[in-house]
Write a protein that binds this DNA or RNA. Structure first.
Lengths: 353, 353
DNA sequence: CTGTTAGCGCGTTCAT
DNA sequence: ATGAACGCGCTAACAG
């Protein structure tokens, strides 16, 4: 019945070896199941003894010690700046699904200061969510020093690491132009901090599409918010409560669009009829909700991202599977327009102007 | 201009030592700034040389190697099962805030299978979100083998680890009883999977409070959902669309309550007047939104949780700061009722029956 | 007082 | 199947 020694200390490989009456090398070989290349190389009876001893002590190999020798952590780090954003959750979900069968554990870094952390903690691969201009040098240094990076950033070149560029500009233009088929009074919902980051392009698409259509941009139709869901809700409410309210809203994020839909409904407006709302990002939330969210976004983005990250983590060189680069490079994602209920097709007969 | 050697390999302490023309010990002393106990013990000129060399190479100490020797990772792991739940975000936020000044990095484990991971990866302390009955043995083993645990679970005893018991039962009774002051037709919104987990108590409080008030529980007033925000929205819509609709909703989660508020508003119901809605958890989201969410929940929960976790991580024995246990034990949080706009006080004059 | 030597603590892996 | 070296950073004990 004495299942564990319960000494309060963590069992080491040496304790297992002693209990089994073999050497630590044998234990290591048995438990990791690798000996040379070909045959087993370890007899069944000893293997059983070792396994029994390990079980009895509750032995778990120390990843830190293993990493120091092998250079592999069986870990990937996801540095995500906006955990509340469904986009982040989609990344997590996709990576977890892809990592599990490989025995790799995804660890999430919620803080924005990945710079300090990634230099000291090692992972087999790191996904970075957003990088400001001032952080670019740090990124390059990390890559030079052997950190395997996959960076999500528009307008950043691959310098020793992979860059995923899901270029928003053209896709966002599609979104606004879709609204322009049925509307003239189109508002924009965008986070106030989006100037320097990738969000800037999403707003710019709005300005440019309007200009191209010969429509003057109205300042009171631009709803700035603080990046939170509640903030987006408030901004949408303000815009939709104006006397000369817009008939359509272009939100630079799906989750902002979801908030806008809620706001519109609270104001008694029928989304997809009185007011059309379109988002950006093509997140799963938008697809599932009711009314379903029209949006633009990359296709199969999260799964492809996960596959790339894990290929880098395992050090695989691309083989049979299609579309996989062998060395660090730029990976572009094509964007599509997903027309759903919140902003349906509008013909000349149904347009709101 | 040759800033880094850019060999593609990570610089080690030995490289720094060689470049600076000193021993690795000196480098270690300089960079960690600790020598024995008292004075500096390392001369300024050599210290400068070392620092310059480290800077030039972009040296960062390898945490894995450090951990193996010191037993400390400067890391805490947060095992969170429902990342989309605002509750999880509040935990993350509080822990990050408390960890930053200590130089400790919080790592988030989004998967539910912490059992496999925590045995091999070491952290100075681990917070575990939810533990099923079958996982209890594993928990105990982990604690026996030296993992510092803080577990959030009702009805689990402290056996070598801290248990945070924010006992929901009485608090939830308060919530339902608050509604009973003004209502007879009270619906309940609860996740379908909540039977075995802590959510069970939250539903039970509903049943018992109704029974105590002499009200028969109606099956069609119980809105089961799948745990997602969209699911809660749908369930609330169904319940509120019934011919004999309830005048109040008790949601077993704040985020479900938020969805219910959105659903009610979409149906044209004035929340806090036509229908009262109360949640459970006292999350920040509910406080900020409009109408503000009435709820029950523990007071100052997240900050206290973060402080406990980091005290355990740093191995501090409780000193001046109040209410801090010295050795693992059960920490109970008192619950309060927060009456806000979504379910205001109802007197005999304003009650809805 | 300053700096070095030597060995620790892991799991892995090459010779034997 | 094993002994011993290895990779890393830390640190007690020592030498100058």
């Amino acid at each position: 019945m004495a299942k564990t020694s319960s000494t309060g200390v963590r069992p080491t490989i040496r304790m297992v070896a002693e209990l089994a009456g073999v050497s630590t090398a044998t234990v290591s070989y048995v438990l990791s199941g690798r000996r040379g290349d070909g045959g087993p190389g370890v007899s069944d009876p000893t293997a059983e003894k070792v396994k029994a001893a390990a079980e009895r002590l509750g032995y778990r190999p120390n990843q830190a010690a293993r990493a120091i020798r092998t250079g592999r952590t069986n870990t990937v780090i996801l540095s995500l700046t906006m955990l509340s954003d469904p986009w982040s959750l989609s990344v997590i979900e996709a990576v977890q699904k892809a990592a599990a069968p490989l025995g790799i554990t995804p660890m999430i870094l919620g803080d924005a200061d990945w710079v300090k952390v990634l230099g000291t903690h090692n992972a087999d691969a790191v996904f970075v969510d957003a990088v400001s201009k001032g952080q670019r040098d740090e990124l390059r240094k990390l890559a030079e020093h052997g950190t395997t990076l996959v960076v999500f950033d528009e307008g950043l070149d691959a310098e020793g690491f992979d860059v995923i560029r899901s270029i928003a500009g053209p896709g966002c233009r599609m979104a606004v132009e879709h609204l322009l088929h049925g509307h003239r009074k189109i508002a924009c919902l965008t986070p106030a901090t989006a100037q320097g980051t990738s969000g800037g392009a999403r707003y710019r698409a709005y300005s440019e599409a309007l200009a191209a259509a010969g429509i003057a941009e109205r300042e009171d139709y631009v709803g700035l918010f603080d990046g939170t869901s509640a903030g987006a809700y408030a901004a949408a409410t303000r815009v939709l409560s104006m006397p000369d309210r817009p008939t359509a809203i272009y939100a630079t994020t799906d989750f902002a669009a979801v908030s806008a839909i809620n706001a519109a409904q609270r104001l008694g407006l029928a989304v997809g009829a009185d007011v059309d709302i379109i988002g950006v990002g093509n997140t799963v939330e938008g697809e599932r909700m009711s009314p379903s969210l029209s949006t633009v976004g990359p296709v199969d983005f999260f799964d492809k991202l996960a596959r790339l990250l894990l290929r880098r983590a395992t050090g695989q060189t691309g083989d049979s599977a299609g579309g996989a680069p062998k060395e660090p490079g730029v990976l572009d994602f094509p964007w599509h327009l997903f027309v759903r209920e919140s902003a349906p097709h509008r013909s000349a007969a149904t347009r709101l102007y």
